[in-house]
């Protein structure tokens, strides 16, 4: 077993356990911490794939900024109470969701297993070789500022729009009126989707 395969095995376990932790934790804070484990595992996998710059950016941007931002909002809003995972608002929703997930995995795995090494088609080394004599950071930066300079400029606009949007969204309006509870769907003639306790009793 090579070193790469060993690192992959360890990181795959970390990534999958972290991913399941995000989905199955009752407490959103635990979900965020599991997300850190997943993102860190993926950063190590990036290193394993010779993507050094992306590994550094992954740790700095994701675990350093995004997860901290999510945790900050959680603490700000005080939504770190446990979620109720026992009740299922739509009957059969979870079963269907897991079924959809299994179909997604099955489709991709079928392509990989049937196709093998031919599953990935396309011309090789079109824009730039991965190891063309330069290191990863040099090559990535060169492509970003030559071939992909227009998309890079567009992302600058995207970030500006996102910042303006966040400011507009989180601005405190002058007259905050709590929205009244929406009318019950049962009153509008819809059948309830879940059985209540009274109905379940008889």
């Amino acid at each position: 077993m090579t070193v790469e395969a060993f690192v992959f095995g360890v990181c795959a376990v970390v990534v999958l356990v972290g991913g399941l932790g995000v989905v199955m934790s009752r407490n959103p804070v635990h979900s965020a911490l599991s997300l850190v484990a997943t993102l860190f595992g993926i950063a190590v996998l990036f290193l394993n794939l010779d993507a050094q710059l992306l590994a550094a950016v992954q740790v700095i941007v994701y675990t350093g900024a995004i997860v901290v931002l999510i945790l900050f909002v959680m603490m700000l809003l005080g939504v770190d109470k446990d979620d109720d995972l026992e009740t299922e608002p739509l009957v059969g929703q979870r079963v269907l969701a897991v079924l959809v997930g299994l179909i997604m995995v099955g489709a991709v795995l079928a392509v990989i297993i049937i196709g093998g090494h031919n599953a990935v088609t396309g011309a090789r080394s079109v824009t730039g070789q991965l190891a063309g004599g330069y290191d990863n950071v040099y090559e990535l930066g060169r492509q970003l500022f030559t071939t992909y300079v227009f998309p890079l400029e567009v992302t600058a606009g995207l970030l500006t729009i996102a910042v303006v949007g966040a400011v507009v969204l989180s601005r405190r309006p002058k007259d905050v009126q709590p929205i009244p509870e929406p009318e019950s769907m049962i009153d509008q003639g819809d059948e309830p989707l879940t059985l209540t306790h009274e109905e379940g009793a008889h």
């Binding site: 993507a51 992306l54 900024a65 995004i66 070789q129 990535l140 492509q143 992909y148 970030l159």
Partner: peptide
């Protein structure tokens, strides 16, 4: 890595920016 092309990593860079936004 499979296609020996740097574009995969460039796209990931853009995905990171979009994810942050």
């Amino acid at each position: 890595k499979m296609l020996n092309d740097i574009t995969g990593q460039v796209i990931v860079f853009f995905v990171l920016v979009v994810a942050a936004a």
